[in-house]
Design a protein around this nucleic acid. Structure first.
Lengths: 337, 337
DNA sequence: TTGAAAGCGCTAACAA
DNA sequence: TTGTTAGCGCTTTCAA
């Protein structure tokens, strides 16, 4: 293993000079710099991470806490994680992967040990048990997702309320008066996951404004569960002509069942999905959808975090504006029978 | 920040005693141990990771390199990653998340800096450019996936060849004589991804043994791509009655199109999927399938890696035995017309 | 523009 | 069973 001292000797300079060449924290003559850089290359030197962290008091690592559960749309999580890792690297940080399993303890451990300089939390609940701790330690952090109380926190999220509203607006604008929302699994609502509840809020308030009726049903996803849910919906509201789907694993079953029941999309019923674009275009009917901008969420989270670590920028809530793309699954409401 | 020295002072012992209480590397009297543990608790002490890594020469971190691409089944990747993180924690290791983006450089960086003690590589290609480096550095590592040459390497993977054989065997046993394999996207084969090619090998050799005919077609996934692929298959082999699908995003389109064409599953055609169980049971027809044991793969990889780091166990290739679960999508071949 | 030297917090000989 | 101490490789004053 090559050390900084060896590089210094090889280049005929002092250790501190090598250190400063590396960090750029003081000016070095061109000649010296080149000699040092050459030695570094020739010896294949890599600074020791542990020594750096110890002396420099920063590990250049950010921790990313991902949920353990997989009852929500997993590819979105993965996309966020990959975007976080990629963006972090671009800023010179590595990413430590923590699962929700350890819960709040992980926050303590990582903070206390100086393993990471900062944390990004995914899948934040409205009342999240990790938050008091995070506020207590004063650890720089960014949440992906919005808790109920954002005081003193930096959060990045899609504006789910606006997303819900946008879906309703689109359908209402097409003349639909009876809309059903097929949501995430019941458990998601039970643990008060912000995005799910906020979407619903947005849906409902815009529904009120536009005078359309809304029926919300959580759904486990898969064919059997959806068949039941759909039956209940048409039973209760036979005049339903618009659907908002916020559950990846319900999208395809919904389209299949509607087809099976002889309800044409978009002639008889319209469907708007909240999902990544890739899902929307790969479905059996190209779906009108509001995209979940997963990579942008990951990127933004890291940018904010780096800003905090650099002493720039403080707490803030970043809400990404939803965008609806009209595709083949939505059209004018059929004339009333 | 609380240091070991402070704990030592608080407990009235020397620093080394505290260190040994923590590491268990020498016997400590019960009385002393309790005093130290009490001080640790009271002061809220957490060992500094950097100092530990520097003095102890191990970071207690393993690096996990995940592919950047997402043209393969993402939830499987995520499940593996989560299993790796969880299992690693159980052994006292943290996980550093590296994306494929940096390529081989990441191997150099992590190795050289002592950031991680070992690496796990996912999505290994048959000829993977990271491997020579890995062998060169002598960094302990485990691959998830099998390269062409496994000399000197430890690998964990599903036995894809046996998986392919198992699928054919099942269909052949039911009397199917003409089988089509709907595979991953062409790009996956073009870059010589081991699992895809090996599955095909297994399929073909068992087909030869059982005397069935096989037609393989890569497929991008999604409805449009699959419709084309399916048309070509029936065009070329009108008598096809058995399908093996190894592409998550082709499963549902296949079922839908078959239905649409009036081909009943499993009465007219049988379908065997290679996918996680969850996908198999959530499909519109409960699928006979060979499960991809993602969590087991992640777990095994970590177990092997830890064994290596502990000086136990050397190179080996761990092939997990595939298991086929019969569900509703496969049945006896229809009588020849 | 450069060098010397004092730590950073911990581990692991070596001693007792 | 416990204590003393010399580093681990780097950053960063302080001095020149």
């Amino acid at each position: 293993m090559v050390t900084l001292a060896e590089v210094a000797q090889h280049a005929g300079v002092s250790a501190s000079t090598v250190s400063y060449v590396l960090s750029g924290k003081r000016s070095i003559s061109a000649a010296t710099r080149q000699r040092v850089e050459r030695s570094i290359r020739e010896l294949g030197y890599h600074p020791n991470a542990g020594a750096r962290a110890l002396a420099g008091k920063r590990s250049n690592i950010v921790a990313l806490m991902v949920p353990l559960r997989t009852d929500m749309y997993v590819p979105v999580m993965m996309e966020i994680a990959i975007a976080v890792a990629t963006t972090a690297r671009a800023h010179g940080y590595d990413v430590l992967l923590l699962t929700g399993e350890e819960g709040p303890d992980a926050v303590r451990r990582v903070t206390g040990s100086g393993l990471a300089d900062a944390m990004i939390l995914m899948d934040v609940q409205l009342e999240d048990e990790r938050l008091p701790l995070l506020l207590g330690t004063g650890q720089p952090s960014v949440l992906i997702g919005l808790p109920a109380d954002t005081a003193g926190l930096t959060c990045v999220d899609l504006d789910w309320s606006a997303t819900g509203a946008l879906c309703v607006e689109h359908l209402a604008g097409l003349g639909h008066r009876d809309i059903a929302v097929i949501g995430e699994a019941p458990a998601v609502y039970e643990r008060h996951t912000g995005f799910a509840e906020r979407t619903l809020d947005g849906v409902r308030s815009r529904a009120r404004e536009t005078g359309v009726r809304v029926l919300h049903r959580p759904c486990e996803g898969g064919y059997d569960a959806l068949a039941l849910t759909l039956a209940r919906i048409f039973d209760e509201r036979p005049g339903t002509t618009g659907f908002v789907v916020q559950n990846e694993s319900a999208v395809e079953p919904l389209l299949a069942l509607l087809r099976q029941q002889g309800r044409a999309v978009p002639e008889d019923v319209s469907v708007v999905a909240i999902c990544p674009d890739q899902v929307a275009v790969q479905a059996s009917v190209r779906l009108t959808s509001v995209a979940i901008p997963a990579p942008e969420m990951g990127r933004q989270a890291v940018e904010r975090l780096v800003a905090k670590l650099d002493g720039r920028g403080g707490d803030e809530v970043v809400l990404l504006t939803p965008e609806l793309t009209v595709r083949a699954s939505s059209g004018p409401a059929p004339a009333a029978p």
